[in-house]
Design a protein around this nucleic acid. Structure first.
Lengths: 343, 343
DNA sequence: AAAACTACCGAAAGGCTTTTCAGCAAGATA
DNA sequence: TATCTTGCTGAAAAGCCTTTCGGTAGTTTT
């Protein structure tokens, strides 16, 4: 590589450049480009060709100056490493429509000070709204109600019921997992989940036990096995479970990671999946679910949909239609080989 | 949830609000807040207190107006789902310093039209520079040299040598993997890699074979086994390998995903890791590497560092210090249980 | 009393688009 | 030919907020 003096970079063409090139006034050029009437067809053509030639596009900043809007939103997260933020972000980007709105991305990395810093930076850039993605499903502190722009909380709700939060219904997700297993003929269903301090773990467990009770079935292993969100806990818990309840014919794992550990332990014991024991996870994380042997059935939390809805609600709030409270979305089971025989 | 009329949102305080509250002119308020002299200490205090009370912070847009810079950069990626962009993004965000610079994130999803769209949107927002994250290590088409702002390509280099690209040295990464295995006493080293159409696969393979040749060792299995970047290929290739070269004592897997498949197949055959066969992967993807049994030694491609350097180079280019060509970074081996006995 | 400060203020610049309104030309009608 | 339309065009203002420049009081020093 090498260094040298900056080459003369082409300046971006402004409207006045186009007007000059087309031999008309700025006002006429603006009208021609925006499809206003009161411009002769021939003149309009000339302007459009000039704009094309100079590869002109309007300055969004100047436009925002008039409109009183910048066409930007801030997305605040603490979970960039994790797998929640990204799908949500994609869904939101989707809903905004490419180019119409631009997204400032900020990762606070779990630090409240840094978060405050980012909020300030975003407000100083005059974003039209904020989306806050929680780092877990647990409720988080509100950014406060005295912000000059609307805020939508996603994945993890705000503690303040006056805020609007969009979340996945985890109780229902647990219920769906069990319903799927029952529908595929399972009767001795166990549940190995993650850290009990996470509401996601507790909610899914509630859904699982409720669905079992309603079906008149016991929980195999008697208790929900809470532990941590790791493969190794999945492995260890499975070994314990098989000792305690060797007739188990299905395991609801609290996450795809745990499910991978469960499957690993089952392979180790030469237990056939799904013939002897079926396994279902949560998250539908492609890397884990589609690479296991057999592929893993998993409850998809529809994070993109969450992001899309959040963006939509933010738009509405920007237009004055402000909502409050918690809005929850249903997840859906993605069936693969770990619960249904492949032939 | 419920909808209602928009509550009167507090307007963000401007400098003139502060000046009025402190009973001074706008000019004096500005000087006081920016630590300029020519302001009496008592007056400065009054202004600072007023600013505090109104929770004033300067408008970045107006500031940029004067400075001729917006303090924003665009980050263009096609791999948000994947694991490359995120660490790079984090590194870049890090280097820019929280609040000083804000990042517009755009995902083109592999679509050239959409990418062009995003570039235009970013330029219309007057970003000070662009970072382009490749979706693979393969060279990608340049955005062109006629852009009004500097561009830095990361992970995947630009095809145009006049652009500046920052990449990982994958040949060296392959060499390091082998050096590590040799240092831990291995002599019959095989290499199972991913899709041969990826330069990452070819480069790492080149590094592996070069290092082996230099050490006077053969490649176990005779050929590099190219396939796909999946666990199932790792499993299948391992079975083939053990038939063809049963005395193999170490496997360099082309990625952590492949490595997981390799380990899975070894477990199946009751081969001890690392006693009988050591395994090393690439990417150091925590979710995969730290959850395997034993934990996986992996070559860390230092993506954060890549992002950090890209941001730094972008800064330099914004100041007129433009570089060209390809700058490559060395990776480093993160040692875990799959290559070294845990006791 | 003149010169040299200090502390402060008013005004303008800095960026670009959109819109408004007045004006000008060419064609149509009396 | 004079007047009236009609159809376009262009100059200028508005939209936002900070910083800086030049200037004016008032106060201190020589």
């Amino acid at each position: 590589m090498s260094a040298e003096d900056a080459p003369s970079r082409p300046r971006t063409a402004t409207l006045s450049d186009v007007a000059r090139a087309a031999g008309v006034s700025i006002a006429t050029a603006s009208k021609a480009l925006n499809g206003r009437d009161q411009v002769k067809a021939e003149t309009r053509d000339r302007v459009l060709r000039a704009a094309e030639r100079l590869s002109f596009f309007p300055n969004a900043l100047a436009k925002g100056l008039l409109a009183g809007r910048t066409g930007t939103v801030g997305l605040l997260t603490s979970d960039l490493e994790g797998r929640f933020s990204i799908p949500i972000l994609m869904g939101a980007e989707d809903a905004f429509g490419a180019g119409k709105m631009s997204v400032f991305l900020c990762d606070a990395r779990g630090d409240a000070i840094r978060e405050q810093h980012h909020v300030q930076a975003l407000l100083s850039r005059r974003v039209d709204g904020l989306i806050v993605v929680g780092s877990s499903t647990n409720p988080r502190t509100s950014l406060g109600s005295d912000l000059p722009v609307p805020v939508v909380y996603v994945y993890g709700p705000s503690e303040d019921p006056a805020d609007l939060s969009i979340i996945t219904d985890n109780v229902d997700a647990g219920r769906q997992a069990v319903d799927h297993l029952i529908a595929t003929g399972r009767r001795r269903i166990a549940h190995i989940s993650g850290d009990v301090s996470y509401s996601a773990a507790r909610d899914r467990a509630e859904g699982v036990t409720t669905a079992l009770t309603e079906a008149g079935l016991p929980l195999s292993g008697e208790r929900v096995m809470f532990g941590s969100w790791s493969e190794s806990w999945g492995r260890g818990a499975t070994r314990l479970l098989l000792e305690r309840a060797p007739d188990t014919d299905a395991i609801v794992a609290g996450s795809d990671q745990i499910a991978r550990g469960v499957m690993d332990a089952l392979h180790e014991r030469r237990v056939d999946i799904p013939e002897d024991i079926a396994v279902i996870g949560f998250d539908n994380w492609a890397v884990l679910a589609t690479n296991s042997r057999p592929q893993l059935t998993s409850v998809d939390l529809r994070l993109e949909e969450l992001g899309r809805l959040a963006a939509q609600r933010l738009f509405e709030a920007m237009d004055g239609d402000v909502r409050h409270g918690v809005e929850s979305l249903r997840s859906r089971v993605v069936t693969r080989g770990s619960t249904t025989p492949s032939h």
